[in-house]
């Protein structure tokens, strides 16, 4: 598994592609910026797209919907979740 910084960079690229954030570059997204409302300004449909992304790219299924609030807080929290669940 790649290290966390490499994973964060890859996640940013995947999110831009999956959510068609064509006016954004990976460097525009801060590791700790909130993904929803403020920050990237994502919405509930984007949350579903992120769930699909996790499953498709990392083979990780969220156990329950409430988990999403913590997991998708920022790129950093997503990366932590992926590292934790990839290792198990």
């Amino acid at each position: 598994m790649e290290n966390k910084q490499e994973l964060i960079q890859r996640l940013k690229e995947q999110i831009i592609k999956q959510l068609k954030l064509e006016d954004k570059k990976p460097e525009d997204i801060g590791d700790h910026d909130p993904l929803f409302v403020e920050g990237l300004g994502l919405d509930s449909i984007d949350a579903l797209e992120l769930i699909v992304l996790l499953q498709q790219e990392y083979n990780i299924k969220l156990k329950n919907a409430e988990e999403g609030q913590d997991v998708f807080r920022s790129i950093d929290t997503m990366a932590d979740y992926i590292l934790e669940h990839s290792a198990s």
């Binding site: 579903l48 797209e49 699909v52 499953q55």
Partner: peptide, 13 residues
């Protein structure tokens, strides 16, 4: 392609 899983909600909607 994904055997009816991993479907993009945007395209569906």
């Amino acid at each position: 392609e994904f055997k009816e899983e991993l479907l993009s909600p945007t395209a569906f909607i």
